[in-house]
Design a protein around this nucleic acid. Structure first.
Lengths: 335, 335
DNA sequence: ATTCGAATTTAGATCGTTCTAAATACCGGG
DNA sequence: CCCGGTATTTAGAACGATCTAAATTCGAAT
């Protein structure tokens, strides 16, 4: 069965000191004399001591554990984000509790309760579609430090995300430079801040450039959904010469759908995605996209949370990464 | 600061019963009278009681937490796997501690120590490249239930994975049926059981079918690596008419590389992948692949661990999912 | 030697839960 | 109204660490 743990008490016994001293050694306190520390450390190594973090947390309220809630583990944008979070936390000797809300606010609530029960030090939340704007306030009421990431609800909290307004602008200016004029937008149907932001970017970019609004089409956030919407896009009143997509998954699906409909993406219709997933280099034609550095956003979110844990009084901070255009084959120069 | 928690004691006080009774209610013990239970539950709801799982674990040794170690969070095979694990665990009201070994055994060791300190109930491990075969034994020595997944080291433990030998056979028979004869294998360079298994499958399939070995080429496990290996493949002594790839990422990268080298994948050279990642439907030509049901493997791993937690004496079990061929555009009939 | 302050070490209470063993309440039958 | 038993409830000791406050040790200065 479960092996009995080696405890502080046993180490203390073996080293001929008190439990408290060993505890100080474990926590690398400068209070303990060098020779004592050395002896205790050696004995800990010999006896394979492993500190019980749960017990420690019970007393001092820090579990060195943080929770991360994402709405999805299939979209690689979230997993790249996650890997950034994990990287920083591991370096900081913290551990990540992972949960998937499946974009369901009820499940998200349950997860938060579970996290609460586990005594996480804080949470990084990418709010599910339909999350109540009051949620961040409630979480704060529990005394649980919160960083929102990628999406945002309610009044400002710590937030790490990407500037999709600029990203869409960037993409639009590129399309115009390539000679496109009638640009459609392939959006996602779920109402999230991510969607609103990109649509706002689209509107602003239309105002700023010579491009004309060829229409907005909606699809599920799956490549199949995007493929199905190809027909709709081709049937728009103003036949677009370019499509700007909510993200690379939709863009890739759209290209597949277009080809099926007899329209060669790139040649007949420029396509641009957002996020620059690894996928973008593997489609044909390769996909022009705007890179958002998902792991970077994850690292930023992790650092924001670390800062918040250190200083709960600091004012909320927004940490936004700048987009970077990556031109590939799906948006060639028009002649 | 950290809000003070509502404790059992306070609920007990408010309900006019003892701490022990409230504890029984929390744990849904049948010992407590219905009317008492009802009253206590109501008060718990009113006071927003959240049970401290850390404290509970300290006493009864079950944390309802399990650890998962994957070598990689970018390959979506692992994240799909992960989502299967997470799904089953969440349903079972357990929580997943996630860590990424980056295929580094030293990091993997550190993670295991952290997990130990957190008192996880068990671990699902996808061993890093170069993991010592003794590791599972050491973990067992700690009294920590272990399930290996996708890769395996050391003597048999509980294991959930896919039958890649059959998968490769399936792919090979398909290629032969399409009229291919000279089949090359694009492998990954890192030595893992996953690699050995697929190579063994390749060897066996060559023996079973009319196909001829056109050679084995190695690449990094990235699409860029695979793209670079396209030239090598085209330069093999026996010019292959088909390439079987270690996984879809390599297959997609290879197709991109082939095209760059002036060879049209599908038409000039059939390509088949393994895993059937979502990616496979989005390449051009779309990629024939062998589906391994990654989330299904994750669910199996989670269930194996749950079973092991319930009965630590049971004999080790291997749970292997069967492969399923998905034919797409990259392996057309030869004429 | 004595004293003082700094450097080290420690006893004992404590965190919030569950366990054990025992106490109390309740019920129907005699 | 007492009895035996079942049904419910409970006091108090754990679990393994950390905190507080106080005790001890150690030099150096007197």
């Amino acid at each position: 069965m479960q092996q009995k743990r080696v405890t502080l008490e046993e180490i203390a016994q073996a080293a001929g000191v008190s439990r408290a001293t060993v505890s100080l050694v474990v926590r690398k306190s400068p209070l303990v004399a060098d020779h004592t520390r050395a002896r205790v450390e050696q004995i800990m190594a010999e006896m394979d001591y492993v500190r019980d973090i749960g017990a420690a947390r019970l007393r001092n309220r820090s579990s060195r554990t943080i929770g991360v809630i994402v709405p999805n583990l299939v979209n690689s944008f979230f997993t790249e984000f996650l890997s950034g979070v994990e990287e920083v936390m591991a370096r900081d000797d913290r551990v990540v509790l992972l949960a998937n809300s499946h974009d369901d606010p009820r499940r998200q609530d349950e997860i938060l309760q579970r996290f609460r029960g586990h005594g996480v030090d804080g949470v990084i939340l990418c709010p599910a579609v339909g999350t109540a704007p009051e949620l961040p306030g409630r979480i704060a009421g529990w005394g649980m430090p919160l960083v929102q990431a990628l999406r945002e609800v309610g009044p400002p909290t710590d937030f790490a995300g990407a500037d999709y307004i600029s990203a869409v602008s960037l993409a639009m200016r590129h399309l115009v430079a390539q000679g496109c004029r009638r640009v459609a937008f392939l959006s996602v149907s779920a109402r999230t801040s991510a969607r609103e932001e990109r649509l706002a970017g689209y509107a602003r970019a239309l105002a700023e450039t010579a491009a004309e609004d060829a229409g907005i089409v909606e699809a599920d956030l799956t490549w199949e959904g995007a493929a199905r919407s190809a027909a709709q896009i081709l049937a728009l009143d103003t036949r677009p010469d370019a499509v700007l997509c909510f993200n690379d998954i939709l863009a890739a699906g759209l290209m597949a759908g277009l080809r099926q409909a007899g329209c060669e993406p790139g040649r007949d219709l420029a396509v641009v995605g957002l996020d620059d997933l690894p996928l973008a280099a593997l489609t044909y034609p390769t996909l022009t996209s705007v890179a958002m550095d998902a792991p970077g956003i994850g690292r930023k979110a992790a650092r924001l949370l670390a800062r918040r844990l250190a200083d709960s009084g600091a004012p909320p901070e927004q940490d936004i990464v700048a987009p970077r255009l990556v031109v590939r084959g799906s948006s060639p120069k028009r002649v």
